[in-house]
Nucleic acid binder design. Sequence first.
DNA 1: TGTACATCAGTGAACGCGCGTTCACTGATGTAC
DNA 2: TGTACATCAGTGAACGCGCGTTCACTGATGTAC
Lengths: 189, 189
Amino acid sequence: VTVKGTQRRAELLDAAEKILCESGYAALTLRAVASTAAVRLGHLQYYFPARADLVAAVLQRTLARSLERLAPLLTPAAAPEVLVRRLLSEQDDPDLVRMYAELWALAGRDEAVAAVMRGFYDDYRAHVAALIRTREPSLPDADCQARAGVFTMLIEGAALFRSGLAAHRSAGTDAELVAVAAGLLGTSS
Amino acid sequence: VTVKGTQRRAELLDAAEKILCESGYAALTLRAVASTAAVRLGHLQYYFPARADLVAAVLQRTLARSLERLAPLLTPAAAPEVLVRRLLSEQDDPDLVRMYAELWALAGRDEAVAAVMRGFYDDYRAHVAALIRTREPSLPDADCQARAGVFTMLIEGAALFRSGLAAHRSAGTDAELVAVAAGLLGTSS
DNA sequence: TGTACATCAGTGAACGCGCGTTCACTGATGTAC
DNA sequence: TGTACATCAGTGAACGCGCGTTCACTGATGTAC
């Protein structure tokens, strides 16, 4: 495990992540990844012997990075409404929403992918639950979990209906969405 | 346009819908459809000259049938909680949820598919809005629309988080989900 | 009632293409003595 | 400080496969006269 090897591997995952985001899972072929990373097909296979290895690696890394980006937003510092708006603005990147939609579809056909996805959303939900707990300390833990679950459903459902996939954005619906989502996070400050 | 031709066409769409539901979009190949319908590849091409024609036709028919199944549930006859529970029980079929996930992913890569999807959800949302209007006649129309929009986000988000794709079902979260969704529909009876 | 003919329904073989995978190979880098 | 050798990094060509599409063809069904 040399420094060069680690770096190359990261470059290949960069290329894979770029393709997955911009062009989708169907376009995530070994040849496309190799070409994007300016590497020969056979060489890519040296690092990822089978396509499944590459897919698993890029999935893990992409979701871990997503969580790193989302977790800092889920702090009690801001008012719930502000927090929800920030969270929703993360959905402004169409490529990202498209990618999530593809991962959901993938999870439906591949139990290993589904397990990784559930792990990601478990972490996400735990952050939300902790936030609710901070805001309403007297609320039983089970209720915090339940509210966090519904909050997550709502936010991820919103991704579909604010991105053009299932509907276009609407200011009126957004206002109601923010109100409902903020209400789930706890009493407004 | 003979009766035989119409019937054959329906049989082919049946086969395509079955594959799309059970095995997903990637498995929706012309050879698989022809084989399922017990028809030769060349013959399938006679009815659907290009794959895109078949995909468009099966998408239209599948969503139209979905709406026919969902619309009767969205009547003011039942209490909101009961109605929401019935709606959620429609998500008990894993194949169906998987298929929706695939259609969302598809919509992200194909604007024609996205347009069909948006049309479907426009109709769906209109039904919900009408239901809310019945239940709370004094509510301005814009508010009905906004609430219906959030309701739809929540229900579709719930599909992801109750099917194993993004999370497994939880009784506690379900209870909170029903409460929030029913609240959006209007005052409880 | 029969005949000619156009259209509809269905067959079968082949095409070029991109895919994941395999494999034998070469050059560079590190390591043991 | 040099040498031998194992491991790492990278190349290039070929494979079998399934895909959508094309096309020439045959048989069945309807229609006009």
